[in-house]
Structure formats: structure tokens, C-alpha cells
Write a protein that binds this DNA or RNA. Sequence first.
DNA 1: ATATAAATTTAGGTTAGTCTAAAAATAGTT
DNA 2: AACTATTTTTAGACTAACCTAAATTTATAT
Lengths: 218, 218
Amino acid sequence: MITLTEENYIKSIYQLGRYGTLTVSTNSIAEALETKASSVTDMVKKLAEKGYANYKRYQGVSLTPQGKKIAADVVRKHRLWEAFLVEKLNFTWDEVHDIAEQLEHIKSEKLINELDKLLDYPTHDPHGDPIPDKNGDIKKTDKTLLFNLAENTKGVCVGVKDTSSSFLKYLDKHKIALGSEITVVSREDFDDSMVIEINNLKMSISQTVANNLFVKEG
Amino acid sequence: MITLTEENYIKSIYQLGRYGTLTVSTNSIAEALETKASSVTDMVKKLAEKGYANYKRYQGVSLTPQGKKIAADVVRKHRLWEAFLVEKLNFTWDEVHDIAEQLEHIKSEKLINELDKLLDYPTHDPHGDPIPDKNGDIKKTDKTLLFNLAENTKGVCVGVKDTSSSFLKYLDKHKIALGSEITVVSREDFDDSMVIEINNLKMSISQTVANNLFVKEG
DNA sequence: ATATAAATTTAGGTTAGTCTAAAAATAGTT
DNA sequence: AACTATTTTTAGACTAACCTAAATTTATAT
């Protein structure tokens, strides 16, 4: 049996390693889980013993195929529950993360499959993140950060990188949502801010905002 | 903060004490939770310290008003989740208990209130057990065990006492469900079995069955 | 290449929840 | 009332997950 804590470590390793990094550092895991590096070392040894992780002292960690499957399952559950909360229970996208952190550990294959069916097999969660399928496979889309768009190009908002409540509320306030069409009007060199047009209104956004919004070009 | 384990102990004390017993024995809690009496003693001391239980050595345990509120909340969540699984996710009444045992510990007031709304404020779970309201109040109905019915009296099935999968499947097989009208045709003295009529068919049931079916007389 | 800084691991200790075995209290029986 | 059986509690020990502080390894900079 796998414990709740083990699942959380595996999920962290998975998510930290998601953008190419072959191996994940002890410190980054500790930071992500708000725990201490020494605790991470302990757990990572255990995960390696159980066959979920590859680990050599001082060399970082990666997941075995078995570990990856577990991680993808947890992520799948997390995102399906988020979709459920928004679609069926009137939650907003800034309210769902913490509850999904709890729900993602519920063990029942039928439950998650029925949830999937009830929601009509969604491919993305309310933040635009893809939902892994039953096999753990994710079909990745060619999205880029708004920050990478050149002047006078357009994009459609397809996701957020920062899913913190404060950022999501900022977006709500300015009527920026998944599906919004955004045009980059101009870029400011000195502070990397940019002026965008959205809903026929021009507004200035900071580099931070532009670096946390995913868009699909064109 | 209250831990998952503490919640489970409190729920057990609540449910064991539900039929009148002023105080619940250490052994009965141990049996209900499949643990050892010595572990129960430890936990019960802690619950008393935290103000959730009344406890004097060798004298059994009861819940304080605070403890009762916690227990009723957990039971409310358990039964609402069971109703949800059956109503919205195509589960049968014999499949829901174990999953609800997990879901009952999810912490989110909004979640449970929205679930309540989605289900249109159900008063009973799929086994006929009443769902406590937000204040922890349960309106109890005047149900009795089928075993207590005299010959030639009728009752409507309104609940089950044993919620084990095997018993529920037995009922399914013989087309006995909540709402079924049952007539006691005759009673057998020597083994306490009885013959009942249901769906225009006569069948014999054992004492065990009659002692685990709740009916509303008349 | 060596010194220093940063990251990681080890060593030893804490807490929650559990267990077994032994001791103490209560209940039941003659 | 005294003996026995049952129930409950205590004592001491275990595991999972965590911590701090010290030691070790790797990385960085002169």
C-alpha cells in the first residue's frame, strides 16, 4: 500500500520534473512540500526501495515508470475533481485547488471513471491544465507564455501557470478568462511590461502577469 | 485541528452510543475500529483532554456537545456522499460505504453544502439512514425491525440495519428495496423465521434477515 | 588548485498512533 | 464474602513522518 504522504512526494517529483529536468533536487522537493531537505532524503530513499523512484546520493531523484503511473493517476484525479467542482458545484477556479488536494487521494477506480463520464470526458481542468487519460498519457498542446508573443500578434488564453487564488482573482477582475482573445499592442523595454487589448479594451500588464498566462498563438 | 483518526474514534463513539447507551465501552470501540483496547484507552484520554469526550477510568466514554457536533458532521458528510454516489454516479447501495468512509473526511463546508443542494436536500441516504442537517439534528422516524411485526400486519421497508455488501446483495436478489411493501404472513416459533409476502410473492426469511430490515408499520 | 559556499546526507530525537504483555479494577458466581 | 473471569489500564516498545544540528559532498569563485 502507498501512503498519502508518499503520493504527495511522488506527485511533487512528477510536477517538478515535468519541464524536461531529468532529475529533481532534494531542496526543490522540500520547498514544494514545505518540509525540510532531511525529511525529503528519508522519503526519497523509501520511494527508491519501493521501486517508485531512482535515487543516487547527491545526484537527485527521478520517477520509475511505476512512480510515473502513480503520479499521473493522482494528477488525473486532482484535475477531474477540479473540473467537477466548477462544473457541477458552482465553485470558481480560484476556490478548487485546496479541496482537490484532498480529493485526489480518494481511492476508487469506479469513482473516478464515473466522474469522468459525468463530466463528459473533459480534456482540461478549469485552469487549462490537461487531464491525463486512464493510461496516464497527456496530449500536450502547443501553448506558450503571453510574455513570448511579439508586438501586434494575437493569442487565445488557454491556461495559467500560477494558480494562486490572488492571481486568478486578478484575472477575474480584469475579465481575462480561458478563451479570451488577447492582442499584444506594445512592449515596454525598461520594465518588460506590455500593453494588451482584450474585450476591445487596452490595458497594461506587468511582466509577472505575462509570464503566468499561457496562450495559443494565432 | 482534529486528525482523521480522532474523527473516526468520535464517529464510532457516536454510533455505538446512538441507541440509548449513556456510555460506550472501550472494548466495543476497539471492535468497531478493528484495533486493540489499549489503543482505545490512549485515544479516549486524548479526546477527553481536547474536550470532545467525557471519560473516567473504567467507566466508559461519552461525547461532549462539541464531540457530538463533530460526529454528526462526519455522519452528515458520509450519508450525503453515499446519496451522491448512488444518485449521480451510478453506484449501487452495496458499493458506497467504503468510498464514503474516505470522502467523509474531506474538509470544506462549501463542498458539502453544494452537494446537499445538487441532491436537492435529501433526508435519507441509500440505506434509509437519516442525514443530519447543518446543525447536526436528525429527525427520527418511527421505524421498527421487521422482526417485531405481528402476523398479518403490513409494513413498508424504510431502511437496513446491516449495511454489509452481502446482505444488500441478498435483498437485491429477492427484489426487496426501500419502499417495498411487506406483509407478515406467518411466524415460525422454533427457529424464529417468518414467511412474508412481497411483490405478490411469498418467501421465507430467517430471523437474521428480519432483524436487519427496518419497516414503517401500517 | 584551493578555499568557501551551497546542497545534501547522516545522526539523533520527537510525536501520533499502534502493539504486546503485565497489572489493576470491575463484574459474575458460588 | 471470596474467588474467578472479564474488562480496562499501564508500561514499554515499534513505525512513519517529521525535525535540528552536525558532517559530508558537490559546486563556485578566486
